[in-house]
Write a protein that binds this DNA or RNA. Structure first.
Lengths: 322, 322
DNA sequence: TCAAAAGTGTTATCCTTACACCCATGT
DNA sequence: ACATGGGTGTAAGGATAACACTTTTGA
């Protein structure tokens, strides 16, 4: 590594002029009794843990860990980067400055210890009630969102724009008999934002419009949360990340319930079990549950060896024989 | 959007203390006559286009476009974010400052115009010669990299570390009869870096060690390039991004050659054609090529409609019937 | 006629999906 | 007995992979 990491062919203007403030933001996910939980801060639980990146931080990830620990008392395990974006910020005077926000997705387990600090876990469906399709499509989708989105679409001045809005809404929310796609979390939030159906969209306006859908969050934290949920819903399909959320030992139904909570959809039990066992993701412990009801279930643990053996995902390109 | 985008529960220290310099770096890919090309700058073509994010830039992406255009004369189309990382930088005096690097992947076409400025395209296999398996595994892998990597593995003090190094190398490079996985570009580069087989790894050392494998780049640009290639090799499998690199009209063989160039592997022609046509990614133009040799081929164009209709990828979870 | 590339047919195999059914335990 | 959850069998359908083969052009 060099001291001057970027040498462009052009002149380098004086640096101070465009230096930026860097914020780290965490979407921390764990399974709670109330469903898929995210770690929140602030009094009405409307913010994600976050804080500025400081010179004392050894790296971006260390800075993130430090802030989350300081603000919630929770220690992070698995972390991956989500997205980086920039906004204009205003300093005390007239001068403007940049704010760079670097967001991360973290997966952990809740500690049931009697620790001094109780981290504030909230179900992510509090913020995105339209995302939980485990009991079929929620009423809010057909009763409220669909008519409002269509009204918004028809409100466009030009025909092609109307058509495009209708189509985007139909794809994102599964209107007109289309399938629900649980991965389109961000697209759905963005549509609701554009249609001013979420509180965040009406902040800059004078129009004290009707905040309709779900609990809102400060700044753009809910958009970041949407990004995190989308990433996780996509990733559980091709990489064994669910196990970061599971206790060391679990039954297959517990595993299934977790995947269902994350994806917001019900799964087919026999086929789910075969899928897991066929991929050799788990191994029996030999124990069974002393469950209160029903036949005792075998207990399993994650086969950590799979992380070494395979790289999990397969091809999809029709390779020719070597 | 609010002016103060992040409100933590903690005190906010004075800002200037930890403000950071922000750099934008682009991995710009296009198909050239010499294979998969990346856009380079600098005299021996050892740098990616890059520049600082400035207050005048409307957004990160606009800043990136501006720098690439200014440094290479090339206009960008498709852009996606790759990764953000941080390094410590030294200012003039003793004071340290942060440098945040935000990297992007861009896909374009080369312009065959007689423009004043000729952008400097280089085959990415100049920098990663071990990644091209279109004519089978390159000699360098078996002749040089394998013995050196094994020597490096055996150089570890402890047995478990030796074992782990051997296994990582075997998985990444397909030793011991394992399949080659073209997506592990970054893992391979990191292994070679750890084993000090790339020039970048020997810079801080006094040891004027032997730079073995491929053309090196300044700072960590080659690592960023590896990240971009890996992302692209992965993405062409589940999203129709190849077409960003194709001319408006093309034959199926040209399309196949492009995918082969990107993935570094040969594909099975009949099955490739069926795959493309089955997914309805293209439509015939009605024209055929006036090709110099062989039977004239039908010309196709990308069906842009697929971007609206489907979201392309399928499920992978065993959903229960609604 | 031959080389080179375009293009079609067909089969074996694997994975996914759906349906039907049996097992073990507590109340 | 029956409710609840655990667990197995199997067959249809689709996608993939491998093989063999025909077609159309220019040299």
């Amino acid at each position: 590594m060099q001291d001057q990491p970027v040498a462009t062919t052009k002149e380098k203007p004086s640096r101070k002029a465009h230096d930026a403030h860097v914020d780290l933001i965490a979407v921390v996910v764990a399974m709670t009794d109330q469903g898929p939980g995210i770690l929140t801060v602030g009094q009405p639980n409307t913010a994600l843990p976050s804080g500025p990146f400081e010179l004392g931080h050894r790296s971006l990830q260390f800075g993130l860990r430090a802030w989350v620990e300081q603000q919630t008392g929770h220690q992070l395990g698995y972390i991956e980067q989500l997205y980086t974006f920039a906004d204009r910020d205003r300093l005390g005077e007239q001068r403007q400055q940049r704010v760079i926000s670097i967001s991360y997705l973290a997966l952990t387990r809740v500690e049931h210890s009697a620790a001094s600090r109780k981290p504030a876990w909230r179900s992510w469906y509090d913020y995105f009630p339209w995302e939980d399709h485990r009991s079929g499509a929620p009423a809010v989708v057909g009763d409220i969102l669909q008519p409002r989105l269509l009204a918004w679409a028809e409100g466009a001045a030009h025909v092609p724009v109307r058509r495009e809005r209708r189509q985007r809404a139909a794809i994102a929310f599964g209107f007109d008999g289309r399938d629900w796609n649980e991965e389109l979390v961000l697209q759905r939030y963005e549509l609701l934002y554009e249609a001013a159906l979420v509180e965040e969209a009406t902040r800059s306006e004078q129009s004290a419009s009707l905040p309709i859908a779900g609990t809102s969050m400060i700044a753009d934290h809910r958009r970041i949360l949407a990004t995190g949920i989308a990433r996780l819903r996509s990733k559980i399909k091709y990489r064994p990340v669910v196990f970061e959320l599971m206790p060391p030992v679990f039954t297959l139904l517990q595993l299934q319930r977790t995947v269902e909570a994350l994806s917001g959809r019900l799964l087919h039990k026999p086929n789910f079990r075969r899928l897991i066992e066929q991929h050799e993701l788990v191994e029996e412990t030999g124990e069974t549950t002393a469950d209160t009801v029903g036949r005792p279930a075998k207990l399993f643990r994650f086969r950590h060896a799979v992380l070494d053996e395979r790289v999990v995902a397969g091809t999809k390109l029709p390779l020719s024989r070597a």
